[in-house]
């Protein structure tokens, strides 16, 4: 249960950073924290007490003593997607900095109304 609380906490901290922090890079950090929180949540859902990793390395392991593999597969994909989105976001930040010379989100709102 505490896994759920911790992962929700990390997600909310990430969301807090996105909402409140003015620096662009801090916002991207917030976004990646939100992703991290979700990934922990997903894996925690799949955990089964007393289950081992879902790999049949030795002959003795049986299917019902294993942890749920599906969330792990999902998280695998989600982490890489998180990386891809963060990379593009940072590229945008670099270009914004090259042009506006500031990372404060309030100063970069020429496109409005």
């Amino acid at each position: 249960m505490i896994y759920y609380i911790a992962s929700i906490a990390v997600m909310l901290i990430g969301l807090y950073a996105v909402l409140v922090k003015k620096n662009l890079i801090k916002i991207v950090i917030g976004l990646s924290l939100m992703d991290a929180g979700t990934h922990l949540l997903l894996v925690a859902i799949g955990f089964i007490k007393g289950g081992t990793a879902p790999i049949f390395s030795e002959p003795g392991l049986t299917a019902d003593a294993m942890v749920d593999p599906v969330p792990q597969a999902l998280v695998l994909t989600a982490i890489v997607i998180g990386l891809a989105v963060t990379a593009v976001a940072l590229a945008l930040v670099i270009r914004i900095y090259a042009q506006h010379k500031t990372l404060d989100i309030r100063k970069i709102s020429s496109l409005k109304w």
């Binding site: 089964i48 007490k49 879902p54 790999i55 049949f56 299917a63 019902d64 593999p69 599906v70 695998l76």
Partner: peptide, 25 residues
């Protein structure tokens, strides 16, 4: 931590015979 697997069970059971891979993930 409870075992509430639906689809997960089928994956675990069929992975070695059907796909031959040891690592279910």
């Amino acid at each position: 931590g409870e075992n509430k697997m639906e689809v997960g069970k089928d994956y675990l059971e069929t992975t070695v015979p059907k796909t031959g891979a040891v690592n279910t993930v």
